[in-house]
């Protein structure tokens, strides 16, 4: 390939974004997802783990924590729409978006720890398989999104796309676990 040294150059103040640099978050996210799945597969499931006072079972604790996470995830979508100007929003929509995201993530972590510790990665039926798969995917995609946030210039659609993936994964995770729990054992604490 030959390069014409006299070709007109664009006056770009910053270097052109190279798509390759997004590989780092993508690879880290993939590594997180695979590592969680591998731990769930290798670790011998114990069947039981901690419980919280005031709840009848760990399943109930997890279902309510997951429901809280989904609630904050919905806040995430709404506040993101505000940030992108698709919805009228207050000036503190950014703060709302950051903190609702943090809460949703931190609330989901104990649930995932329990799932991986007590149940492991399972594929015995469709519900459990999708839940296992997307549970690992969720934390990988979330890690990738957090790392992407550190880049200065991102393609306009990249963050909404990754955020949408994270939200979709969490929703399906909730449908295949907490909703199933509430339908099987009742809406109980």
């Amino acid at each position: 390939m030959t390069v014409d040294p006299n070709a007109p150059t664009q006056d770009v103040p910053a270097p052109r974004p190279r798509p390759a640099r997004y590989l780092v978050p993508a690879l880290v996210g993939a590594a997180v997802a695979v590592a969680l799945g591998a731990y769930g597969q290798v670790h011998d499931p114990t069947g039981t783990a901690f419980n919280l006072a005031g709840f009848s079972s760990t399943g109930a604790v997890k279902s309510w924590l997951a429901t809280a996470a989904l609630f904050f995830a919905v806040v995430q979508v709404i506040s993101a729409l505000m940030l992108y100007g698709r919805l009228p929003g207050p000036s503190w929509a950014g703060v709302l978006h950051r903190w609702s995201g943090r809460v949703a993530f931190l609330v989901a972590v104990p649930v995932a720890v329990h799932c991986l510790y007590a149940f492991g990665y399972r594929t015995s039926d469709t519900r459990v398989m999708w839940h296992s798969l997307l549970g690992c995917f969720f934390f990988g995609a979330f890690s990738a999104k957090m790392l992407l946030l550190r880049f200065e210039r991102l393609p306009a659609r990249l963050l909404p796309l990754v955020g949408g993936l994270v939200f979709t994964a969490l929703t399906i995770i909730w449908l295949t676990s907490a909703l199933w729990f509430f339908r099987t054992f009742g809406v109980t604490t």
Binding site: A49, A53, H114, K145
Partner: peptide, 30 residues
């Protein structure tokens, strides 16, 4: 911020895992 969020999540997860491993299968007094 995003890195701190991830870090706190990892620490929370690891501490819960350590707590689980330390207490074995005995559930906390419910």
């Amino acid at each position: 911020g995003p890195l701190l969020t991830l870090l706190v999540g990892v620490l929370l997860g690891l501490s819960m895992l350590a707590f689980n491993t330390a207490t074995g299968t005995r559930s906390a007094p419910s």
